[in-house]
């Protein structure tokens, strides 16, 4: 650490400089879009300074794709190649949905460190720190998606829906992930530490992604479990992504995903904002 030497080297605070700084202007307040984008810029800066935080975005989906394809692929679908065609869209869904947890952990860390109160004390549109953080996360989802798809293509994934299908499914995933993140922002305002946010998120995400049609066709499951899988929004999301990537466009299912996205924001957005306003 070279902080001490820098301290000595730094010039002392001068009265003149302080005077001129305090005579500064007072610009007019910017609108909600600009403040949200500015908070998004902060999230990108954090990725730049702490690239290690992208481990969950990169390693996790790579590990899952390789493990499931080669460990279970043969047993589940007859051949690893065939299973990959089924699994990859699902893994893409799982990767994105898992990455959303990061939103809550980051926000909770901000609260612990006191950055959050600085932002709350600013005269800006109140949701903008949260919206900005979520916009920054869209970058993470995009990186995660790009990695999964590239790896898939290398391993032999051949989307019949072509580039258009792939891009559309990623866009839909980004929308859903952005909306799901509000669940975690709410959680991070309730729980005390980043670790507890991570713990609770995992407890929700593991059953949610595994009790779905991401890894296997639910036809082999017992009836009661099929019923659970059927109402799991992740199942619908995986069905849509699978469909789009392989060239069929299930309009009803797309509608279902969009409606559940809107519902997620409509329910958890306002709760988050109430908690945010009254945070102790």
């Amino acid at each position: 650490m070279n902080a001490t030497s820098a301290e000595q080297a730094s010039a002392p605070v001068t009265e003149d400089a302080l005077r001129s700084v305090l005579a500064g202007e007072r610009p007019s307040s910017p609108g909600p879009v600009l403040t949200s984008l500015t908070f998004g810029w902060r999230a990108l800066l954090k990725i730049k300074h702490v690239p290690e935080q992208l481990v969950d975005v990169t390693m996790f989906p790579i590990m899952f794709t390789l493990m499931f394809t080669y460990l279970f692929g043969g047993a589940l679908a007859g051949s690893t190649q065939e299973y990959l065609q089924f699994l990859l869209p699902g893994i893409l869904v799982q990767a994105n949905v898992m990455i959303t947890m990061n939103t809550g952990i980051t926000l909770n860390t901000d609260i612990q460190k006191g950055v959050f109160d600085r932002f709350r004390s600013l005269p800006v549109w109140r949701p903008s720190p949260l919206v900005g953080a979520l916009l920054g996360d869209v970058m993470r989802y995009s990186i995660g998606s790009a990695i999964v798809i590239t790896l898939g293509l290398v391993l032999g994934f051949r989307p019949e829906g072509g580039a258009v299908g792939v891009v559309l499914s990623v866009v839909l995933l980004l929308v859903f992930s952005f909306c799901l993140s509000w669940l975690w922002t709410m959680l991070s305002l309730i729980l005390r530490t980043p670790n507890s946010v991570a713990g609770v998120s995992m407890m929700v995400m593991f059953p949610l992604t595994f009790v779905s049609n991401i890894f296997v066709d639910p036809k082999t499951m017992p009836g009661w479990l099929q019923a659970v899988v059927e109402v799991n929004p992740i199942t619908h999301l995986a069905t849509v992504v699978r469909g789009l990537m392989h060239g069929s466009v299930p309009a009803g299912e797309i509608g279902w995903v969009l409606v559940s996205s809107v519902l997620l924001v409509a329910v958890f957005g306002p709760i988050t904002m109430v908690l945010y306003r009254n945070k102790k």
């Binding site: 610009p27 007019s28 307040s29 910017p30 600009l34 403040t35 500015t38 908070f39 810029w41 902060r42 800066l45 954090k46 300074h49 702490v50 901000d110 460190k113 006191g114 950055v115 109160d117 600085r118 004390s121 600013l122 005269p123 800006v124």
Partner: peptide, 27 residues
């Protein structure tokens, strides 16, 4: 506002922190 409870982002540099706030305040 300055205190243990209203601080700056440790991951960002000094100039980035101030620029962030300046942009949020309309500069």
């Amino acid at each position: 506002l300055t205190g243990q409870f209203a601080s700056v982002d440790e991951d960002l540099t000094g100039v980035e922190n101030l620029l962030l706030l300046a942009r949020l305040l309309g500069y």
